[in-house]
Each structure stands twice: as structure tokens, then as C-alpha cells.
Amino acid sequence: MRIKDGFTLREIVGQHVVIGEGLSQVNFNKMIHMNDSAAYLWKSVVGKDFSVKDLTDLLLERYEVTEEKASADAAALAAKWIEAGIVTE
């Protein structure tokens, strides 16, 4: 997976949002609201190819969760990003 070009993570009143800012995103008229862990993952993988396993490992590095939980969260988040159109499969 890879984050598509032209999306920028920004912070407003302490909350994270991803905004379409590239030319290819001129008609992307929505914003994705992210929690802290999603924003942490986004910052870690932006500009790189990544897998659900990479996201899982990143979650395990940072948070005290079981591998099972981290893996489920990572898979759910990846699916959500793909559905939102901000990540390619």
C-alpha cells in the first residue's frame, strides 16, 4: 500500500485531519479526521510502500497492546484509508 500523492496531514485545535491538496486531488472535496494513533501511523508511512504488517509493527512499537489487537486495528485502518480513497492497495 501507499499513500496517494497530494494528501497532507495537518493539525487544527489539536486534532489531525488529512486534506487533499495536490493537483490530482483538486476535486477531492472531503477531509479525513484522524485520531492520534492513525496520525502517528500516517506520519510513519507517508512516501513509502507499506503493508498491514508494517502498521501492526508500528502500533506495537508505540502502544502497549497485544499483537492480535494491533493487527486487527491495522487491518481495519488500512481498509478505511483505501475506502476513503487516500491510499492505493
Binding site: I12, V17, I19, G22, Q25, V26, N29, M31
Partner: peptide
């Protein structure tokens, strides 16, 4: 409110 106003603002975001 940000999403609302931002989407109605002119400017080449690229």
C-alpha cells in the same frame, strides 16, 4: 467549520 470554509476558499492548493 474548517472543512466547510476551506472547501469554499479559492487557491491552488498544489
Amino acid at each position: 467549520g474548517f472543512a466547510s470554509l476551506y472547501s469554499s476558499s479559492s487557491g491552488l492548493r498544489a
